[in-house]
Simulated scan of single mutants.
Amino acid sequence: MTADFSIRPARPGDASALAALRREVYPYMVRGEATIRRMIVSPPPGTDRIFLVADRAGEPAGTVSAFRQPRSADAGFGQVAVQVHPDHRGRGIGTALLAEATDYLRAVGVTRADTWAVPESLGFARRNGFEPSREMRYSALDLTAFTGVPDAGPGITLVPLSEVTEQALYEADVAAATDEPGDVPSQPMPYPTWRYETWEEPGLDRDVSTAAVAGGVIVSFSLLLRDGDRAWSDMTATVPEHRGRGLARLVKTETLRRAAAGGVRTAYTSNDETNTPMLAVNSRLGYRPIATQLSCLATLTS
C-alpha cells in the first residue's frame, strides 16, 4: 500500500497541533504549547534530540521525539516517544516514525533505547524490537475538594520556588535524583541540560512549586508544571540524609494546596512501580490510578 503521509522535521507552527495531539493520546500527561514550541526551536543541549512529524491530509497525524537520555550513566542510552492520533492509526505511521527515530539514534551512537507503551500497544513495541521491562503508574487528583494542610514541624521552612536560587535547586536535585528508578544506572543531569529542562521550563509554576529548607539548604522539593487548569507533578524528591521524615508528603501537600488555590482543577503524576514510598504518599494525598505504561527496551543494532 502506498503511504498517504509524509515525515518531516517539526516546525514552530506545529506546536498547537502537537499539544492537542498529546492531549488526545495521553490526556493524563501535561505539556503546554509553549514547551513544545521551545523544544522544536531550540532542543535541550547535550541530548542530540530530534522532533519529527507525520503529515496526513495536511495535518499532523503523528509525531516522534528521539534523544540521548541525559540522566543515564550510559552515554549510549536513548529514548524514543511515538504518538499517533487514533483517527490515523493502522496506516503504518507509527512504524515509519519509529524507524526514522531509531535510524537517527544509531547514527549518533546510541546503542540501546527505551520507549513507553500503553498495554494495548505492547504488541507494536515488540514487533519493533522493544521488550517490556518495568511499569509506570499514572494517577490523578481532583483538586476542587483538596483540603491538605501541611505541618512543617521544627527546623523546616516551606518556601515557593520563586524564593530559591537556581544553584540551590540544582544541588538538591543532584543529591536526590541519583537513585531514581530506571532501566539503566543514573547520573546527575549535566547542568546546562538541567537548566533547560527544569529551571527554564515554560510550564514551571514557581509560585506554586515548593521547597523545604533546613539550615539554609533545600532538603526536599516538589515541582509542578501547569497548563491552564491542569497540572503535572514533575518531580518530588528529598535528599537522602533527610528521608524518612515525611518531607516529600509535606512539600507535595503544600504545592497542591497552592495549586488548588490558584485555580488548578486536576493534578496528574506518575511513579515507577518500584517507588513504593511515593506511591504511598500519593495514595494518602488522594491520588487515584488512571493508567499504566510499560517501559520497553531495545538494542539498536545496525
Rank of each mutant, 00 (worst) to 15 (best):
P154I: 07
P119C: 02
A101Q: 03
P150L: 09
W199M: 02
G90L: 06
V184H: 04
S139E: 07
T210G: 00
Q187M: 04
P132Y: 05
L158P: 05
A113P: 02
D179L: 13
P154A: 10
T147K: 15
L98W: 09
E131K: 07
Q187E: 12
P188M: 00
V149F: 11
Q167C: 06
Y170H: 07
D207C: 10
E201V: 11
V174E: 10
E163F: 13
L97R: 06
T111S: 15
I156H: 03
S186P: 00
I93K: 07
A172W: 04
V82K: 02
I156V: 15
A140L: 11
F146G: 02
W194M: 01
P192K: 05
V184E: 11
D207Q: 15
T147N: 13
V110Y: 10
V84W: 09
V213R: 00
M189Q: 05
V80I: 12
V159G: 03
R137A: 04
T144H: 08
Y191P: 03
A96K: 02
P202M: 04
T198W: 02
E131I: 09
Q167K: 14
L143I: 04
Q187Y: 01
P190L: 05
E120D: 14
S133W: 14
L122K: 05
S162G: 06
F146V: 03
W199P: 00
V213C: 04
Q187R: 09
L161K: 02
D151S: 15
I93C: 05
G216M: 07
Q167D: 15
A214C: 12
R127G: 06
P181E: 09
Q79L: 10
G216W: 12
A176V: 06
D207T: 15
R126S: 05
T193W: 06
L143S: 03
Q83G: 06
G203L: 15
G153W: 09
T157D: 15
P181M: 01
R127L: 07
L143C: 07
D87G: 13
D183Y: 02
L97G: 12
T193L: 07
A125P: 00
A81W: 14
L122M: 14
P132M: 04
P185S: 08
E131H: 13
T102N: 08
F77N: 07
Q187W: 00
R89W: 09
L97C: 10
A214L: 05
V110G: 01
L141R: 02
L161A: 09
L161Q: 08
T111V: 13
D114C: 10
W116K: 08
P86C: 04
